[in-house]
């Protein structure tokens, strides 16, 4: 492709791309192995507000994927690196299961609000506490802004509505750290020492994975697994670099055409 440099890194989404719930996408483990034999760095990137890296790793190991914890970069990791960079002491409105990804971060006398999805913490009381801090100048950091998600018992509110409510009440704008933010992708690439125009992203979410990555200067490959719905590739402009049936096909395309 004109203006692009040789490919150095591949970012891969997890849920919906490598696996759907508790089943691996057929052929995905072997495809990952083939990709690792090529001279490209690989990183696994996902939006999660409640699953720690350890938890994600355990699931992928159970499904026989070959990867290490340090190769995983999540929206929680992005929040953590922002906190470290700005030396904020956060009030963490995240599920207890996500807390281990913030281990070692100072949380006494908080001066920032981090909001994930935490139904147990989204009480009037706690949201008031967060609101008062924000009104006094504490920055509001959102893991992501999803509107709702599907639970076994039906649809349920995501973090987005609560972030939006706090933004309105305190007349402020949250810093969103997860996909599809540009900063998420550049951070994921930063320790690989490569720039966006040397990287490609594979995912099942047209807007958050492919659109976000392409907006950051990467190539985006959309797979027709997971949450993909017919016509999703037409929902973003520019359209995906490639839309293909599944992860193994995406890998074949990369090995054949992008290296």
């Amino acid at each position: 492709m004109a203006g692009r440099r040789a490919l150095k890194a591949v970012l891969i989404d997890l849920s919906g791309t490598l696996h759907v719930e508790d089943a691996a996408v057929p052929g995905a483990q072997d495809a990952l192995k083939r990709l690792r034999q090529a001279s490209v760095a690989v990183k696994f990137v996902t939006n999660t507000t409640k699953e720690s890296k350890r938890h994600l790793l355990e699931r992928l190991h159970r499904l026989n994927f070959d990867l290490q914890e340090k190769e995983i970069f999540t929206s929680l990791s992005a929040a953590r690196s922002l906190l470290e960079q700005k030396q904020h002491r956060p009030l963490l409105l995240v599920e207890d299961s996500a807390l281990e990804d913030f281990a070692g971060i100072e949380t006494s006398e908080p001066n920032a609000v981090v909001i994930g999805l935490a139904p147990d913490h989204f009480s009037y009381q706690t949201l008031n506490e967060a609101f008062r801090m924000i009104l006094d100048g504490a920055p509001l950091i959102a893991i992501h802004k999803a509107r709702y998600y599907k639970r076994k018992d039906g649809l349920a509110l995501g973090p987005g509505p609560f972030v939006t409510g706090l933004e309105y009440a305190a007349d402020c704008k949250a810093t969103v750290v997860g996909k599809p933010e540009k900063a998420f992708f550049t951070q994921a690439l930063s320790d690989l020492g490569c720039s966006p125009n040397e990287a490609v992203m594979i995912g099942d979410d047209a807007r958050d994975d492919v659109g976000g990555a392409q907006n950051a200067g990467m190539l985006g490959i959309l797979v027709r697994t997971g949450k993909y719905r017919e016509g999703d590739e037409k929902k973003i402009n520019p359209s995906p670099h490639l839309t293909c049936d599944s992860f193994p096909e995406a890998v074949d395309h990369i090995l054949k055409n992008l290296l």
């Binding site: 509110l157 987005g160 309105y168």
Partner: peptide
């Protein structure tokens, strides 16, 4: 309303929750 004052401090008003539902349901 965005917020109002109680004797113990400022509290979120209905507007914050209105915006939350507006965003969730578009």
């Amino acid at each position: 309303g965005r917020y109002y004052k109680e004797t113990d401090g400022l509290n979120l008003d209905v507007g914050a929750y209105m915006k939350a539902l507006e965003y969730a349901c578009d």
